[in-house]
């Protein structure tokens, strides 16, 4: 069993093949966690997460690790440092400094919801982990991730007409990330989709009737929620990034 919190272990040595006097002693060495005292714990993160509608269930977590054991990123994809149980633990502890090590990791949850399915305590793990990621981003610990940018592009796109313009979203997001398909490839795909009636973008984009009335209300709700989640952030760092 690998040591998951290996970041707490100083000088961990992993050996594939180590033989001493004919005896196989390969594996993890120096795995003792040196005793340490942390004084820089700050509970504002768990207070903030608990205050979000997506994060209210964080306090129910009793650290069994069922979420991590089944997590598709942790197990199937093999991203060992993606450990939802540990993220929740660090948030509950207010151990932001340690959590900051995972600033490039937390956002990678793909929302498969196996953790929510299996949690014996009813923690909405996936949404709690997203909230932790949002906190890291809003408090300036983590940069805005591609997934954050995609969520924003998606939401903007659908609020426009009520119906998602899939091709428009694809193009807008890819362009924003500085990626473009080769023109020939784009033409080939575009024509195939167009002639099979699957391309509803630009002037062909679909629209929900009556959307004009609901849209401003939803836009206002979104703006309020985006402003609301900035409340309760620690003032020690200026928030960075977009909404």
């Amino acid at each position: 069993m690998p040591i998951v919190e290996k970041s707490l272990v100083e000088g961990l040595q992993r050996t594939e093949t180590l033989e001493v006097e004919g005896i196989d002693v390969s594996g993890d060495w120096n795995t003792f966690i040196a005793s340490r005292v942390h004084t820089d714990l700050d509970l504002s993160i768990v207070d903030w997460v608990r205050g979000q509608p997506q994060g209210t269930t964080i306090d129910r977590c009793w650290q069994c690790g069922t979420c991590t054991a089944g997590c598709c990123l942790h197990t199937d994809y093999g991203l060992e440092e993606f450990n939802p149980r540990y993220f929740i633990y660090l948030a509950q502890l207010g151990f932001e400094k340690e959590l900051a090590r995972y600033a490039q990791t937390v956002w990678r949850c793909v929302s498969c919801n196996k953790c929510v399915e299996r949690c014996p305590k009813g923690v909405k793990v996936e949404e709690v982990v997203h909230s932790i990621g949002t906190y890291l981003e809003l408090s300036g610990t983590a940069p805005k991730s591609p997934a954050d940018r995609f969520d924003e592009a998606y939401t903007r796109n659908l609020l426009e007409r009520g119906i998602l313009d899939e091709a428009g979203l694809f193009q807008a997001f890819e362009a924003g990330e500085g990626r473009t398909l080769p023109t020939r490839e784009k033409l080939r795909m575009g024509l195939k989709l167009l002639f099979s009636g699957r391309l509803h973008t630009g002037p062909l984009a679909k629209r929900t009737r009556g959307w004009g009335r609901l849209r401003p209300v939803l836009e206002r709700m979104l703006a309020e929620d985006l402003a609301g989640r900035r409340r309760g952030l620690p003032s020690r760092r200026p928030p960075t990034g977009g909404p």
Binding site: H130, D151, E152, T155, L158, I163
Partner: peptide, 25 residues
Amino acid sequence: EEYNCCGATEVKNLSHDVSVALPSR
């Protein structure tokens, strides 16, 4: 008829209430 996008798994990361209002409609 005249349905709207459900918000999938994206909208909820920005706003809980919008992500509930969209499918509720």
